[in-house]
Simulated scan of single mutants.
Amino acid sequence: MSALLEVKNLKKYFKTPRGMLHAVDDVSFDLNSGKTLGVVGESGCGKSTLGRVLINLLEATDGEIFFEGNNVIGMKKKQIKDLRQYMQIIFQDPYSSLDPRMSVSEIIAEPLRIYEVCKSNDELKKRVQELMKIVGLTERLANAYPHELDGGRRQRIGIARALALNPKFIVCDEPVSALDVSIQAQILNLMQDLQKERGLTYLFITHNLSVVKHISDDIMVMYLGNMVEKCNTKALFKRNFHPYTKALLSAIPIPQIGIEKRRILLEGEISSPINPKPGCRFASRCIYAKERCNSEQPVLREILADHFVACHYVESINIL
């Protein structure tokens, strides 16, 4: 299976008064067509920045992004506009990402108008109605405004808008984190159904490890801009290697009374992503850290089929 998206040594730095903030630092991965890559990690690790750089909402500092074999970085404005038809995003907050002065039908119709997809107003109206039906919005809501709707319906509007131009790749930036649990399940099921019907490819960013386990084919774990582990979803939950991954998974609650789960508590100071020092960025919080961890940046290594880990600890327990 050929990769729809190939990312090589991607970097995104931001200039701050104290120096360069390394939001995304030397990240590489492939994403096959029709698959979902889940991206997890604590707040500030660079997940959302990565998603925005991939679809050119933010300009990359360095690296390469190949979409269907074409390098996205360095494209001209006209090329980027054409590319946006095939690369879309669903934002985290379904309210702030919608224009409060536009009705539901106007919001969904906007990308169709910009790209002049429909030849007449009747065709545009019909297409908007189709999209509303696809995402489960009743026709009576066409003239409603975002503030009149609940979070689930607002997020359905965002999904309909993302689907309007028949994209191939969608960045899902924590699309259910602001919703109630019951509504989360509805939106996740909708997204999975759409993926099966349309062959969509997702980059699914989330904090919820139960959600990412449910929806993802592969999972990538990020820490302070670096990718520290990446593998098949089942493999990650059965046999993970990086100490940070182990700590994340230990935080998943067990929904059974009387069963206690051993939590791995991370102590120590979080390293600053601004002008980071040489060495592993997790070393200050890692119970397995050695002297070399403070001076050498661990290289991402393949330790099993499709299982990559960046950690000196993995080398020390002779798994390689």
Rank of each mutant, 00 (worst) to 15 (best):
N226S: 14
K238F: 11
S250F: 06
L236R: 00
K234I: 12
E260Q: 14
M227D: 07
K230A: 10
K234F: 08
G258E: 09
F241S: 14
Q256T: 13
L236A: 00
L248V: 05
M227G: 12
S250R: 04
P243L: 11
K238Q: 14
C231H: 04
E229D: 08
A251I: 01
I259Q: 09
N240G: 08
C231V: 06
E229Y: 09
K246S: 10
N232F: 11
V228Q: 10
K246N: 09
I252Q: 03
A247H: 05
I252P: 01
I252W: 03
A251W: 00
F241W: 12
S250T: 04
G225F: 13
E229A: 08
I254W: 01
G258C: 09
N226V: 05
S250W: 06
G258F: 10
L236G: 00
F237H: 04
K238M: 11
I257V: 13
Q256G: 01
P253L: 04
R239G: 08
K261C: 03
K261P: 00
A235C: 05
A247R: 02
C231S: 15
A235V: 12
Y244C: 02
E260S: 14
A235K: 14
V228E: 10
T245P: 02
C231E: 14
N226W: 13
T233D: 12
R239A: 12
A247F: 06
V228Y: 10
Q256C: 10
F241Y: 15
E229S: 07
R239K: 15
Q256R: 11
Y244F: 09
